[in-house]
């Protein structure tokens, strides 16, 4: 049997194949078995968090940090521009497709997690804080 990948100190172990994930509903699932609905449902239940659709608009080698990739996203209804630098093996959950990364081979090698190839145009699951209602918007107590 193939040896289970060992999480290096810098590799987050919640992406290791077989890692147990607790959804906001209390349900437990393995990271490789998660589906889009699990994230959507958890955000609904958790109250303070909101799921955003973040479209990948550009992928390039990071200028500032050699070895990392710069991912450029358009985030949420506002299509806000957000750029993050991540290791190429970092997995992202793509709506309707599942786990994807810039280097599926390295993701499989380091985490044991099967991934699609992340591409421009992919829409990833991200979270942000639920916009707090402004005081004047809050319903007056009946």
């Amino acid at each position: 049997s193939s040896l289970a990948p060992v999480p290096a100190p810098c590799n987050p172990s919640h992406f290791m194949k077989g890692a147990i994930i607790q959804l906001a509903t209390g349900e437990l699932k393995r990271v490789e078995d998660l589906q889009t609905q699990d994230f959507v449902r958890s955000a609904e239940v958790s109250g303070g968090l909101k799921i955003d659709s973040s479209m990948v608009v550009d992928i390039r080698a990071s200028q500032q940090r050699p070895g990392l990739v710069s991912l450029h996203f358009n985030v949420g209804e506002q299509q806000s521009k957000v750029t993050i630098d991540v290791p190429p093996e970092h997995p992202f959950f793509v709506f309707g497709q599942g786990w994807s990364s810039c280097s599926p081979e390295r993701t499989a090698q380091l985490y044991g997690l099967a991934c699609h190839h992340l591409q421009v145009g992919d829409v990833c699951v991200s979270i942000t804080l639920q916009q707090q209602l402004q005081p004047q918007q809050q319903k007056q107590p009946q």
Binding site: F15, I20, I21, Q22, F39, S54, F92, S126, I127, T128
Partner: peptide, 25 residues
């Protein structure tokens, strides 16, 4: 007797990026 090995459980929101636009946006 074998000590039961505790299995770590991770919260769902640790798996997805928190992509809050910076103020400059």
């Amino acid at each position: 007797n074998v000590e039961p090995r505790s299995v770590p459980v991770f919260p769902w929101h640790s798996l997805v990026p928190f992509l809050a636009p910076t103020q400059s946006d």
